[in-house]
Amino acid sequence: MSLASLSSARRATATRRLAAFRVPPTVALAFAIIALVIAWSLAPGLFTSHDPVNGVPVDKLLGPSAAHWFGTDHLGRDLYARVVYGTASSVTSALIAVVIGVLAGGLIGLVAGFLGGWVDIVFARLVDVLLAIPNFLLAVIVVTAIGFDTTNAAIATGVSAVAVFARVMRAEVIKTRQATFVEASFLFGGSRWHILLRHVLPNASRSVLPLAVLQFGLSILVIASLAFLGYGDPPPASDWGLLISIGKDYLKWPWLVYAPALVTIATVLSVNRISRWLRKTD
């Protein structure tokens, strides 16, 4: 191959790599929304000067304005401030749920797929049982058993996600275990632990990242739904689901429902868009 042809091939390869990592406008917008939500959860005081707990009775049920972006509630509290301060609870709970699902489900899938045999059969039947129960119903059962608050709701949501991560990890481990480089490592005398940690786990876990991002959005929805039903922290907490639940009693003032609902929807849609982009760029 001539130098010109080699240089052209290298430029083409570099162009393809740049195209693969190019962020579409919708993905950039999704990242911006998630960055704003994370900033709300980390430093809510930087985004609002209103008190999320103590309101001004004279200002109750005011519509959205420059002074109160999302309006005020029945106690005169700024709704934007309550949404912003409720972000930390919603985001933290969703992260707890995802961590539980990834660690527990990933470990089950890793062990079942790598060892095979009766271990795989036992874990596969356990996963089938969990998958047979709807996620939200399983979350309600768990949170009812361990108690009503947002942390327990997060734990319940994480337990309901274990089966999904276990099945995906098991499938990826089985596929990776049959790869040529894994068989070559066995032939060269590699131990099970070396092959598991050095080859199988890094390659099998690549598909877990988009699923974890997707599960983060789903966890926000499940936790908000549990809070809406009263399984989360009681007032004056400002979880997004609780705000929607309180707002439904004041239908003449729709911003009480629309504001937290739109924030929840925008967050979940942004997470889903990022997850789809990650799957395409894997």
Rank of each mutant, 00 (worst) to 15 (best):
P236T: 06
L79V: 13
S238C: 07
S270P: 05
R273Q: 13
T13V: 15
P254I: 10
P24W: 03
G105M: 08
V257P: 09
Y231A: 10
S205D: 09
V129S: 04
P236L: 06
Y258N: 08
G230D: 11
L211V: 13
V208G: 08
A32F: 11
I244E: 03
T26Q: 13
K60Q: 15
G113N: 06
V200I: 15
V83P: 03
S89I: 14
A12F: 15
V164N: 05
A12T: 15
F186N: 07
F148V: 14
P210Y: 09
Q215L: 07
V129M: 09
I34S: 02
G109A: 06
G247D: 11
L36N: 13
A139M: 02
M169F: 03
R279V: 04
G86M: 00
H68E: 00
W240V: 14
V23N: 06
D78C: 01
D59V: 07
L6R: 15
V127K: 02
F165R: 00
I100G: 02
V98Y: 05
N135D: 09
S205Y: 11
A12H: 14
L197F: 07
T157C: 10
I244M: 05
D59Y: 09
A30G: 07
S191N: 02
I121Q: 10
L131A: 11
R125F: 09
A112M: 07
V162R: 02
L107R: 08
S245K: 06
S185C: 10
L278Y: 05
A154F: 03
V173F: 14
S245H: 09
V23Q: 11
T151H: 13
S275R: 04
A139V: 05
V99Q: 08
V164Y: 10
V27A: 04
L61S: 10
F70N: 01
T267W: 01
